[in-house]
Design a protein around this nucleic acid. Sequence first.
DNA 1: CGGTGGATTGAGCTCAATCAAGCAGCGTGG
DNA 2: CCACGCTGCTTGATTGAGCTCAATCCACCG
Lengths: 211, 211
Amino acid sequence: MYASAHLAQVEPGQFFFHQDEPGETMYVLIEGQIKMTLLGPEGRQVLIRIVAPCEDFGAVSAIVGTPYPLTAEAVTRCQALAWDQPAITSSVEAYPTLRENALQVAVRRFHQLQARFRELATESAEQRIARTLLRLADQAGRSNGEGMLIDLTLSRSDLAEMTGTSLYTVSRILSQWERHGLLKNGREKVLIRDLSKLTTVAKTPDTSSLI
Amino acid sequence: MYASAHLAQVEPGQFFFHQDEPGETMYVLIEGQIKMTLLGPEGRQVLIRIVAPCEDFGAVSAIVGTPYPLTAEAVTRCQALAWDQPAITSSVEAYPTLRENALQVAVRRFHQLQARFRELATESAEQRIARTLLRLADQAGRSNGEGMLIDLTLSRSDLAEMTGTSLYTVSRILSQWERHGLLKNGREKVLIRDLSKLTTVAKTPDTSSLI
DNA sequence: CGGTGGATTGAGCTCAATCAAGCAGCGTGG
DNA sequence: CCACGCTGCTTGATTGAGCTCAATCCACCG
């Protein structure tokens, strides 16, 4: 199976694929970072997912044979293993559990998206940002002496596009949290210092009470 | 296959299943109407989908064998065909295309949800309500002399829960549209009179220009 | 050292939530 | 058949969260 893969290399700002293109290839990221975004006609884009090394992307579309629903843009220089359609079908035939797996993954993503939908519809910007940080920490957190560093290139506007807010709102809220010692900000970096307090914020409708 | 189904009957306000329960049964609605909602801890609920007769629900969960992600509540008195786990597995083994079908359906729903997520994150309340009405018209529209009637029990607060707004906002916007002849409102009813204008509203960021 | 792109912060404004009242259609029971 | 009550709908007034614009600031890189 590995023999049938080839290596895809993509420069920052370039794309693995665009939304609505036929889903012909599935990837596993080896190195770099990818943003998976959704563009609306006219509308601002939305950031659905950040892909870190060792994660797959484009897999569900390629296996099911539907167009890619999202655009995959390289944030940094990227290397990824790529399997094309024939390799996929033969692999899936050889190992039916692969399809089963893809299904499980798809279902999990679906539920996550529903959860985010609910958050967006019912919760405050503060809560959504907190939740997003926690999710990212879970995905790409790296503990060190200072706390839990989110090991991604993560700008304020990335966070804005993930939470359905503006870059300014994100900045304000992060600064406020830094002042209260919940975390430490850097250029395209966030270091969480008090995970439990952040969790509380994520669940608390009224923010002002716990300052 | 039909032999292995049984009939499920549910009274208004009662439930077919609750979210997070194991997905043991799949249904096809014969008569009535169902709301599929997502409840957050603490948060207000969100209406993800309305099920009309002849549509399936709970199918993906039951086939894949994961917990239901949503709660299915009967709006009116409902009758549905129900298949339990053993019947499903044997049917799927006999007709593998069934699984294929379920997958296609799931993928389509996934894309729809992503689209709605983007709308919620980037568009105005007005646009979202317009889009939702169009989607519902597509799902359950019935043309008559007056226009296109959405053939569902559809309260203002249902629309609010679908669009991530408040019942008041929905009421105001629908009234405004009625004043301009786009549609006609009724108690838990909406009749669309000018589909093309509504489509324009759905796509137009600045509403005021086309009054 | 200047330039470039990200981040911060203030001021003003707007959209939509909330609160509060009252209205209207519909079903029920006297 | 009417009165009542229930539930859904409307509408006004007010408020506030978060958007937008604009002006810096800061870190990193050539």
